[in-house]
Design a protein around this nucleic acid. Structure first.
Lengths: 295, 295
DNA sequence: GCGCCGAGGGTACGGCGTACGCAGGTGTTC
DNA sequence: GAACACCTGCGTACGCCGTACCCTCGGCGC
């Protein structure tokens, strides 16, 4: 039996739809067993099919049927892990993200993940960078430092709103380090350059602005989510607490808190709060530079 | 031996200072053993002492000597747990804080903690509030809204610097809720009241300012600690990364980042960064109110 | 044909939060 | 005294977690 015969049989299985793109064709050893040929023959069969472009060989996995948009991923792969992890973190919260949970979502073994990711911390870093990749800054910045800082801050805010876990995992590793984070730093530093500020000041202003956006997201997100889950506003919750300090809180010692918190229902909009603080921060930078926003 | 004799002996021990407020007096069974009297007699002794107001009976724990502000703590107690937990979090980081670790530090069983604390989340909340209690605001505020906001913000900053874990655990529960946090909110809201701002705006400014301090602490603390532990500055670390993006970073695409980060050694002082952002934020509020800081 | 290599994955270890229940103490009542 | 209701300390166990270690298996170079 010539190797072309075997090629013919396998090609027939593919064209018949018996094997669809992504399926594994018989391995060399299986060919040896099934057709009673030598190892060299089986090797030649696969080489011929690969030559035709009918199949693709994935090292360490096997030889699979090629095909248009069908699973070009080598089964697992960093990208699939990353997407699954982000989907879990978005949907179930960062606390629900475990290596076992990710593996289950992918239908694979837990330890298989470690072939593609060194550990959970690195996975979080990659997730973080991938999230930044979803919110790229525009290629051409708007005119004026203020508009530029608004663009980057709002983009960062949108990122934190879309992926709340990013704000809460920032401190787990060195920040601003991934390739998708770098443009943010660069953008802000560029916006602040040329205004007559020295470099240490530019650096501090950049960090202060990032810190503000980050802090607003981190401290407000949990409150918003808790309120959404329980339907209890902050002040209602404080009132409902049965602690020993209930009397203190209603004692009249905190008149301003009572007055303002009672209006919290109308004033508690995350985006509005963020914009308020951002405007103050930029006003403060404007006061420092003595310019009003032109480049 | 009449029950009054036994009463006399125990009263003598108390007045002699042999038993101080909070100490347990002999239990009924101990009285039976020590004085050779019957159970009914021992009961009568304790009833008589209670009648005098000399002792207090704590159901299920014993009878203790009464006294002004004496602690009736039953050996363990919430206060000891709290102090041990804070000591661990300060010294070994919040990640090292586990219920088992706290119990070990106290030389007690893990589950004993749950007699005094509902769970870890509540323990963290109590720790947070205790930390706030360490940094009380002055009883009489300085004149002018700006000076007042500076006082509270710097006090909060000092708190975060002293107990870094506070900044990282804020989002785990409802913020600003403990009795020691309330004065901070009240202080800021009072400072912002009377400047012609409406309540929702006051609320937003307050949250924005808190968010800034919190964000600065949370995002800078990890960087500072990592740098202290490894001795590697941020830029050195980025340079040392062996990722696929090293070429990108050195490609000249980020000229401003390179320029500014190279000066990071001189500009990276946490307190200075904090003060820079705080001044900007307050300048921004000043621009909004049209006043410069007077009340 | 045979060894190599790299991917997938199973087992196990130490650690976590905490539900549950038991032991041993208490003052009071029979 | 014995029984009772109570409270505190704490041992055991369960189901999670991250991950070190080792095994299997397929394709490939020799």
């Amino acid at each position: 039996m010539a190797y072309t015969d075997v090629v013919e049989v396998i090609r027939a299985r593919i064209t018949a739809g018996e094997l669809v793109p992504g399926d594994r064709i018989p391995s060399t050893r299986q060919i040896v067993a099934e057709f009673g040929v030598a190892m060299a023959t089986a090797s030649k069969v696969i080489a011929a099919l690969r030559q035709e472009g009918l199949v693709r060989v994935l090292p360490g996995v096997g030889t699979v049927v090629a095909g248009g948009a069908a699973a070009p991923e080598p089964e697992l792969g960093r990208g699939r892990i990353l997407r699954a992890a982000i989907r879990i973190a978005d949907g179930e919260g960062i606390d629900a993200l475990s290596m076992r949970r990710v593996a289950a979502a992918l239908g694979t073994g837990t330890m298989s993940l470690y072939r593609h990711v060194p550990g959970k911390e690195e996975l979080l870093l990659l997730m973080r960078d991938a999230a930044f990749g979803e919110f790229p800054l525009p290629p051409v910045p708007p005119p004026g430092w203020r508009a530029q800082l608004e663009v980057s801050s709002r983009s960062l805010w949108a990122l934190y709103r879309r992926h709340p876990w990013v704000a809460r995992t920032t401190s787990m590793t060195r920040p601003y380090a991934g390739p998708n984070q770098m443009p943010y730093s660069e953008w802000n530093l560029r916006a602040l350059t040329g205004l007559g500020l020295d470099d240490p000041t530019i650096f501090r202003l950049h960090l202060a602005l990032f810190g503000y956006v980050h802090g607003a997201a981190a401290s407000l997100e949990s409150e918003a989510r808790e309120e959404a889950e329980t339907g209890v506003t902050l002040w209602q919750w404080i009132r409902a607490r049965e602690t020993e300090n209930r009397a203190v809180m209603e004692s009249g010692s905190f008149p301003n808190s009572v007055r303002v918190f009672l209006h919290a229902d109308t004033g508690f909009d995350l985006d509005t709060i963020f914009e308020t603080g951002l405007a103050r921060m930029l006003d403060g930078i404007a006061a420092l530079t003595g310019r009003t926003g032109e480049r």
